[in-house]
Write a protein that binds this DNA or RNA. Structure first.
Length: 773
RNA sequence: GGGCAGUUAGUUCAGCUGGUUAGAAUGCCUCGCUUACACCGAGGAGGUCAUAGGUUCGAAUCCUAUACUGCCCACCA
């Protein structure tokens, strides 16, 4: 049911988009916002690539904390295998326990390397022993410490996370040679054995910490030293923060602002290069031409004294013919590709032709509302805002609507391995696409809350769809030919349903505009089922099945008109069925072809019709009130009949003390199954008297049974009401209330007490009538 | 360690800026095969609104704690 513009279909790897990505990279590079460097990145040894910070998921795992003696100090670590790359031990400068060791050199166990004891504020004296082993090549913190203290970086792992001793001195390898080639986890076990054997382990504690995993394959991520491309994020983030802070971009629901801002203000540079074969290749080129250093001899002969590779880096949208520095042609492109989000960030404008200034771009950028899910707020939303602001100078959309995530009935994420997935195709087969869609929308009530999709909700929506279908069938069936005349006089029910319809249009429109889709769905559900089907169609039957041809034509016109408009309002919620019904209406009924928005050239699809606007003059509170009273009378009679077990098929007589119009009498007779209405308050002996508003009615119940139960129930209600009246009375005497409450509140209470009193009297009469049986 | 949600009928959820006899759907119970629909119609039972304080004439609604549940963020060796 999505209405897409298929003429503008795009794929991330399209040539146009690829051009946009190159421009993005080159521009940022030229502005100094992209750099290349050897840094610690999140490395997935299985995927063989770097990944960004947000692609790492943290998992709490049980492990150990090993306390290892490094000469005069003991260090605590969760990763003993990395000690092969240790190049220092750090302590807090203010830690008295270690002051005597500052600047000293100790010997790394097993390896025998001499490493210094350094001081750094990073070290927390309260953790472990207060002394930390420093491994600059295998831990981001240690890397930074290494930078601060100029420590060597010794890499001890291959890209596959197997131990390599390549960077160790010959002598250092001697006692750890058996570790070479081992997987990092195997190596951990083995090095502990070596340490135990050497008497270096002081103690081992159980320890729980969170371990980073690759979000794609769940492999434990390795902090790994490698050459990567980075985006300097701060200048970009600042603009994107401002866009949300000053309201140029609004989040719905609003609370995501905080999440976004918090994240944006703590961003670290974004690693955008990936060592994968699928993606946009980085448009950076390296000159591998040989540069010869020569020395001129006197006889125009030159002698090569040495040579080296040029290694010039050229960043360009197109492949350079030759190196601008050395003129060489031995140029290779960087084999890395981009993080897919680096290209996705451009989506709002790359799809419209950027970097060209196309008509589409002018027309459609900035876009309006981004509908998305909160789980990609960092991956995508934030980056689109950054890219839009920076490259286009305008935010890409004014509003981001976060829809809910669909979870299973227990609030768990649906996943194949959990076996809790509801297959949408299967649901569509069984219940229909409209039902599934409507179920989703109705569940969007608590904005931004996760949705728990249940069978029950789907069934409910399917039943609703079925109800709509049947009511439409009824309306279409009721119409016999094309001889309908324009509506003449309308009776109460007609005016009422039109009033309700227009109120519904108004509310639904408002709800959609304020992104309250669940509420809109609820309004429609109540209107269609609770008002159109339950009441209007029932009263319409009186005229449809009657003899008056004019009345018949009139009610048909209203039925058709209401159905048509309802289909339009319902269309965004149930696109397929409403179109189908609309087409049936359209082909069968002349009246619709006169409607004001009919365009003879179009497909006459409901999708192309104007969204209905509420006709204010048809909204009539007086009519609604009057109809509401009729409904109340009917409900009261039904209630009495049901509780007294009066045969539904058996017509009974109703006395009315008030003069009722023929029309209203007709409604009551039909809907409450009344055989006869006598306008008089001359009630027979055993009569239940009830009031609706000011109107009084009597329902003779002579010869009917089971009074005790009913009178008991009514007594309960009577008492409850009496208590309520008492409460209000007290309130109305309370000086504090009178002093502080608003005038309208006081008035409301007075009104309430009036209504309750009438009902109380009615109930009293009712009970009396029962008791007298 | 920080932050964000949620906690209302058996179940799934409404209840916006404080004044409702606290609603709906579903399930349950009773009745009904009435000429659109049994995927239906009519009626009914069912809640001390997580707990404890506070503000207020008045709190499901505002404030503060607490508990439980879920999620997000964070470089604790």
């Amino acid at each position: 049911g999505a209405s897409c513009d298929w003429s503008r279909e795009r794929f991330t790897m399209d040539e146009g988009l690829s051009r946009a990505v190159k421009r993005h990279f080159v521009q940022l590079y030229n502005e100094g916002l992209i750099y290349r460097g050897k840094r610690i990145v999140n490395w997935c040894p299985r995927c063989g690539t770097a990944i960004s910070d947000i692609e790492v998921k943290y998992e709490t795992k049980k492990g150990h904390l090993w306390f290892i003696r490094y000469g005069e100090v003991i260090v605590a670590t969760t990763r003993p295998e990395t000690m092969l790359g240790d190049t220092a031990v750090a302590v807090n400068p203010n830690d008295d326990r270690y002051k005597h060791l500052h600047g000293k050199v100790i010997t790394l166990p097993l390896v025998g390397r001499k490493i210094p004891i350094i001081t750094d504020d990073f070290v927390d004296p309260k953790f472990g022993t207060g002394a930390v082993k420093v491994t600059p090549a295998h831990d981001p913190n240690d890397f930074e410490m290494g930078e601060r203290h100029n420590l060597p970086r010794i890499n001890i792992l291959t890209p596959e996370a197997k131990v390599t001793l390549a960077e160790l001195e010959e002598g250092e390898k001697r006692s750890v040679r058996i570790l070479e080639g081992l997987d990092r986890f195997k190596a951990r076990e083995e090095i502990v054995k070596l340490l135990v054997a050497g008497g270096y382990i002081e103690k081992i504690e159980d320890y729980e910490n969170s371990v980073g995993e690759c979000h794609r394959c769940n492999t434990v991520v390795e902090p790994y030293l490698s050459d990567q491309w980075f985006v300097k994020i701060k200048p970009l983030a600042e603009k994107a923060i401002a866009a949300v802070e000053d309201g140029r971009v609004k989040f719905v629901p609003e609370r995501w602002n905080k999440v976004y801002l918090q994240w944006m203000t703590n961003l670290r540079d974004w690693c955008i290069s990936r060592q994968l074969w699928w993606g946009h290749q980085v448009p950076a080129y390296y000159c591998k031409s040989e540069i010869l250093n020569t020395k001129s001899e006197t006889n125009s002969k030159s002698e090569i004294i040495n040579s080296k590779l040029c290694e010039e880096i050229i960043v360009s949208e197109t492949r350079p013919e030759k190196c601008p520095k050395c003129g060489g042609t031995n140029i290779i492109q960087d084999p890395d590709v981009f993080d897919t989000w680096f290209s996705s960030a451009l989506w709002p404008f790359s799809t419209l032709g950027w970097p060209d200034e196309t008509e589409d771009l002018k027309t459609f950028y900035p876009t309006d509302v981004l509908v998305t899910s909160y789980d990609i707020i960092f991956f995508w939303v934030a980056r689109m805002i950054m890219a839009g602001e920076h490259l286009m100078g305008k935010v890409p959309f004014h509003t981001v609507y976060f829809n809910a995530l669909v979870k299973d009935i227990n609030g768990k994420k649906m996943s194949k391995s959990w076996g809790n997935v509801i297959d949408p195709l299967e649901v569509i087969d069984r219940a229909g696409a409209d039902a599934l869609r409507f179920a989703f929308i109705s569940l969007c009530a608590g904005q931004g809350q996760d949705i728990k999709l249940s069978e029950e909700k789907i069934t409910e929506a399917r039943n609703f769809a079925n109800k709509i279908w049947n009511s439409a069938r009824f309306v279409l069936m009721a119409e016999k030919s094309g001889e309908i005349e324009v509506v003449g006089t309308m009776e109460l029910a007609d005016k009422w349903i039109l009033s309700r319809l227009n109120q519904t249009i108004e509310k639904v429109t408002k709800n959609i505009e304020s992104y309250e889709f669940g509420e809109a769905a609820k309004q429609l559900y109540e209107f269609v089922w609770g008002e159109f089907c339950d009441w209007y169609i029932e009263t319409a039957k009186i005229r449809l099945y009657g003899q008056d041809e004019k009345a018949k034509a009139e009610v048909q016109a209203v039925l058709l008109g209401v159905l048509e408009t309802t289909m339009k309002v319902l269309h965004p919620f149930m696109p397929f069925m409403t179109e189908e019904i609309y087409q049936k209406l359209n082909t069968k009924h002349e009246i619709l072809n006169k409607s004001e928005d009919k365009n003879p050239n179009d497909l006459n699809s409901i999708m192309l019709k104007k969204w209905p606007t509420a006709e204010k003059n048809l909204i009539d509170p007086k009519v609604e009130e009057e109809m509401e009273r009729v409904m109340e009378i009917v409900r009261t009679i039904r209630n009495i009949r049901a509780t007294l077990c009066i045969q539904p098929g058996k017509p009974i007589k109703l006395h009315s003390a008030a003069l009722l119009s023929e029309t209203i009498q007709g409604y009551i007779k039909a809907l409450a199954k009344i055989g006869e209405i006598e306008i008089s308050n001359n009630y027979p002996k055993h009569t239940i008297v009830f009031k609706v508003g000011e109107l009084e009615f009597g329902l003779p119940v002579e010869g009917l049974v089971d009074f005790a139960k009913e009178s008991e129930r009514l007594q309960k209600e009577h008492d409850k009401l009496a208590a309520e009246i008492e409460k209000i009375k007290v309130k109305l005497k309370d000086e504090n209330f009178l002093k502080h409450a608003s005038e309208s509140s006081v008035q409301k209470e007075n009104q309430k007490i009036g209504e309750y009193n009438i009902r109380l009297v009615t109930l009293g009469n009712y009970i009396k009538a029962l008791r007298s049986q």
